[in-house]
Write a protein that binds this DNA or RNA. Structure first.
Length: 416
RNA sequence: CGGGGCGUAGCGCAGCCUGGUUAGCGCACACGGUUCGGGACCGUGGUGUCGGCCGUUCAAAUCGGCUCGCCCCGACCA
């Protein structure tokens, strides 16, 4: 992609409405724009990153045996009355009526809809276990939308629901998801931790939160350095081993629950087991905040100049910067490197704008391309380009002829 | 919902307290020229229902009331 054609409205100054770092950089780097409190548009670069997270999540859900579906955001009140949540959920539930005066809501989560589907379609234990998921926009009229995209009123979420014959089956599904979540966050290049958690309004017995470790995180986590166990409750400091406890801060990006029969009982979602008896489906549900993961990734990976994307989440992997557009040599070499890298399968942007070098450097840092290839005087004189790694702030001079090979190695290294 | 803050050009702000010329500055934008390895410089130019409504006054960005929106802190959440 050529930078001159990319729609990236960057901001030199901090927008007054943004205080939190990820929010500031997302606005400044031209990733998002706000429409209303807690409601955002994703611009091309922001959407690319979001799609990268989605792809990783999707691959890992599929790998764990999940099957993707898409449920409606618009849901009839009747379902919510069956579980009692129409009254329980409160004003956070976005409610409205259709033209005939029938009550509906915009789904903040989908237990009711999926359980309704399950009770209609699952008859026999032979159909179990079943893991269904979707990646979809959720609506929650938050008391107080906050921190930009971090707590939005409209946001993208991956939610998976497991259906099993019994508690043993549920535990197997739960364990699969637990591991899938670990893989998702590891592949995103993020430092994460899983901690036992309260299950809140979703209900159920066992539950874990997945947190991205970031200094600005709202939640405190206590990690035992000897046994590795973690908790969010200060008093419960891993008394079992008595080791040294380290406190860190984290941002909740995922939550998994063992629901049991909390929804299947009231909604009468039964199946016939091997013994011929009717039993309620044993359920679990598993969520990942997609946008939140993006914000958390920035909270955990930035410096004063801007974002330092992990390779896996960067909107583009490489930016090629010709220092002086007036010098034919810079321009030609930059173009040929751009072509070569594109051919080689890199996601690369060519900064072909008539801007000063300093301007391009500052913007490349802000946006956070993991790899910068700078074509300038050294290229003209010695046939070398400068390769800069954004996150480590390391620079290397590489011969023009070896650029592609060098970047292949770097990419492999950064991917680990 | 309680507490605090903000709303003036696309963005960041000054002006308001103490009402009174044509509402200003920086950035951005357009055109011309000079620059070109860390957000360049010079010149020229365009840009405003001063968030909205009502009121006070000869006169309101400025004073008063109401209202809308946004941000931050608290109780809830991916």
């Amino acid at each position: 992609m050529r930078m001159s054609l990319l729609f990236v409205p960057t901001l030199k100054e901090d927008p007054q409405e943004a205080e939190v770092i990820s929010h500031r950089f997302m606005l400044r780097a031209g990733l998002i724009r706000q429409l209303s409190a807690g409601v955002y548009t994703f611009l091309p670069l922001g959407w690319r990153t979001l799609e990268k997270i989605i792809r990783i999540v999707r691959e890992e859900m599929n790998r764990a045996g999940g099957q993707e579906i898409l449920m409606p955001a618009m849901q009839p009140a009747e379902l919510w009355k069956e579980t009692g949540r129409w009254d329980m959920y409160g004003p956070e539930l976005v409610r409205f009526q259709d033209r005939r005066g029938r009550d509906f809501c915009l789904g903040p989560t989908h237990e009711e809809v999926i359980t309704d589907l399950a009770r209609r379609e699952i008859r026999s234990y032979r159909q179990l276990p079943l893991l269904l998921y979707q990646i979809q926009t959720k609506f929650r009229d938050e008391i107080r939308p906050r921190f930009g995209i971090m707590r939005a009123r409209e946001f993208l979420m991956k939610d998976l629901y497991s259906f099993d014959r019994d508690v043993n089956g549920l535990q197997v599904s739960y364990q699969k998801m637990y591991e899938a979540y670990c893989r998702v966050f590891r592949r995103c290049g993020l430092e994460y931790i899983a901690v036992p958690a309260e299950s809140g309004i979703i209900g159920g017995d066992v539950s874990h939160e997945f947190l991205i470790i970031a200094g600005s995180g709202e939640e405190r986590v206590f990690i035992c350095l000897s046994c590795g166990s973690a908790t969010t409750v200060e008093e419960a400091r891993c008394p079992q081993c008595g080791g040294v406890v380290e406190e860190k801060r984290g941002i909740e990006v995922g939550h998994i629950f063992q629901l049991g029969t909390k929804y299947s009982e009231p909604m009468k979602a039964y199946f016939v087991d091997r013994d011929g008896k009717e039993k309620p489906l044993v359920m679990g549900c598993y969520g990942i905040g997609i946008g939140r993961t993006m914000a958390a990734a920035i909270e955990a990976n930035h410096d004063e100049r801007g974002i330092c994307w992990p390779l896996a989440l960067a909107p583009y992997e490489v930016v090629v910067i010709p220092v002086n557009m007036k010098k034919t040599k810079h321009w030609e070499e930059a173009w040929s490197i751009y072509e070569e890298l594109s051919q080689a399968g890199f996601e690369v942007v060519l900064d072909d704008r008539e801007e000063s070098a300093g301007y391009k450097f500052a913007e490349a840092d802000l946006i956070g391309f993991p790899i910068h290839v700078i074509v300038g005087e050294k290229t003209e004189r010695n046939g070398v380009v400068e390769v800069k790694l954004r996150k480590r702030n390391e620079r290397a001079e590489v011969r023009r002829t070896e650029v592609c090979e060098f970047l292949r190695k770097i990419r492999k290294e950064l991917a680990e």
